[in-house]
Design a protein around this nucleic acid. Structure first.
Lengths: 363, 363
DNA sequence: TTGAAAGCGATACCAT
DNA sequence: ATGGTATCGCTTTCAA
């Protein structure tokens, strides 16, 4: 049961390997129908499958798309990776999984390594302001799609960006809280040195100012600058933020915009540590809409990213760039996020409960 | 900046390509020290990296380990995939990600495809009782490691299984509830036609019987047989189970053993839909200890799987089978799970709350 | 101890 | 419209 090669097919179909190769590579136009049929039949009968390694050796390209995420251990990235794999499969591609842990150096090494191994399509989930660390590979022809990172002025021209409109997202989230009557709304995030985070932050600021409030008056979480937490630990970060922000209850916010759901969930956990009730004492809104947002108690209000659609776009841009379907190179797609109201946010009027300690009350 | 080949290195080191190849493949023993040093220097200087495709074409093997999980969208599998990637990286391997969606046919197709693409090491996360659908590939030499599925009598000899001891896990979980004084303990799961699930179920049954109770008296979730839910939807399943089990409060359990954390979380959500309080009206215990277990409100009591260790074992068995480090082929490693007590389980005595109905309870 | 040379399987150029 | 063939980079006998 030796491997079936292109030679075998050629022989069985009474043609040359060249013709079979032409057939395989969609050049059936220069081929008489009868020939094509014979080849097709031979392939089917022998159960022929082209050898990827040989193909790749020959033309230096592979049928693999590299996926670099911060960490698939994070439910958001896990869900995204899932969607990417589905989309890739539909296009006959495999997905090589890489976890950068948000380390720029690991990002670079992965991208270089993938490139040297013949991978020509990479979906890079990064939020670094600059793509300098991988630009040399891009200039050699890598089809890079960045995800969750809108295009930046100095990006190499050929890069396509797929992202949710984080600015709008931050705005929508904040506006929701404002409309509920909150006026002391905190923003909680890790380092906002990343472009998507700062966009969300900008949306938050705009909404606050538009409401006639002053951003400077709002409590932000001190950890904004530091970044001792990685990506899996987003929840830890949220939890720490809650403890800090509510240490002094006189200045504590009544509502919180969290940078993402994991952070929001961690924040809720922290609130609970302090004996506060989410959606009652404090309103919390997240970002992403991971599966667990709906499962949480109380179910988390959040801003949904359409990851299925985004994954499809990312994959098709990465593997079929240049085909009719594709966007103009250098352009970015900014999908609109959607507010999903659940129970972790509530009217400010209802916020003032016994357990909340602006009103000094202790059992 | 053309590619550096083995020829270039050979030339630079004044040796033949063969020698460089020998050097690269750990056959430095048959080589004079001076030669080795020259080769080493040349490689370093030229920044040579062997071409995977060529290597693979030549010996039909790749440096890639295939990872087939039900769905990385599920936080448990996402976390596992993360650990696998880390472990593989340490061994110089890449991870090709495949989602089977628990479909035996997809499992088979993926395994076959990986094999034909030169992947010789696969970690298959399946829970099918039989490996018949992939045995033909195993007999050709595939190094298959099954995860989350202890070895079965009819498995091909060369398969290594890495799994938690599900029997013990189910037992530990159930015993915990019994010790809290519960006597009406439900078991909630999807189809238990899978070997790990049935093992957990067996552990549950054993513990129940050992306590002098009768399994037949315990409410199981009716959905045991059906399986309309896939893996991502484990939480949906748990939620549905809660609604059904608590429809008739007279027979409703006071404690629940869920097949895994996602199901447990869904169950908690369902309980909440019915106005019941987890850890108060009802005790719930999960399995896995995903990150979100600790984040939940109340934090979920669960049985932890040591996934970091398990991933390391799985990868090393898959890629270095036969080396000194490895287990005997055909054997299985059953790691001991660990009970993690949090707040979703409580003493039966405390269970009787106003919102809970069917008292009169007799201690 | 080292080297020469024959492929692994597919492709694309150049003939026919 | 089809076929012959050199080639991609590496490994592995087999000879020296």
């Amino acid at each position: 049961m030796a491997r079936v090669t292109i030679q075998d097919v050629a022989q069985a179909a009474n043609v040359s390997p060249s013709s079979v190769s032409n057939f395989l590579n969609d050049r059936q136009d220069r081929m008489v129908a009868a020939t094509r049929d014979r080849i097709e039949a031979a392939i089917a009968e022998l159960g022929y499958r082209p050898n990827r390694a040989a193909r790749q050796l020959r033309n230096g390209k592979s049928q693999t798309v590299g996926l670099v995420v911060p960490s698939v251990g994070n439910p958001f990235w896990g869900a995204f990776a899932h969607e990417v794999e589905i989309a890739a499969l539909a296009l006959g591609c495999s997905v090589l999984l890489c976890n950068s842990e948000r380390d720029p150096d690991r990002e670079r090494r992965y991208v270089e390594e993938l490139w040297e191994d013949g991978v020509r399509s990479i979906i890079l989930c990064t939020s670094l302001p600059s793509l300098d660390h991988v630009s040399h590979v891009i200039s050699e022809g890598l089809r890079l799609v960045t995800f969750d990172r809108p295009a930046q002025p100095h990006d190499p021209e050929s890069v396509v960006s797929i992202s949710v409109d984080n600015n709008v997202g931050g705005h929508v989230a904040t506006t929701h809280l404002l409309e509920l009557g909150h006026t002391n709304i905190a923003f909680v995030s890790g380092s906002i040195r990343s472009v998507n985070r700062s966009a969300r932050y900008r949306g938050y600021c705009d909404a606050i100012e538009a409401a006639g409030l002053n951003v400077a008056d709002m409590p932000h979480w001190a950890g904004l600058e530091a970044d001792q937490f990685g990506d899996v630990e987003a929840s830890e970060l949220g939890r720490a933020a809650a403890l800090e922000l509510f240490a002094d209850r006189a200045t504590a916010p009544t509502a919180v915009v969290a940078i993402n759901d994991m952070t929001a969930l961690g924040f809720c956990r922290g609130l609970r540590d302090m004996g506060l009730k989410v959606g009652q004492d404090v309103s919390v809104i997240g970002f992403d809409d991971i599966i667990l947002a709906d499962l949480y108690d109380p179910p988390l209000t959040t801003v949904r990213q359409p990851i299925t659609r985004m994954a499809q776009l990312a994959v098709s841009e990465a593997v079929e760039r240049g085909s009719s379907e594709s966007t103009d190179p250098g352009s970015s797609v900014l999908l609109r996020p959607e507010l999903v109201v659940r129970e972790s946010t509530a009217l400010y009027a209802n916020t003032i409960s016994d357990s909340f300690l602006h009103v000094p009350a202790t059992p």
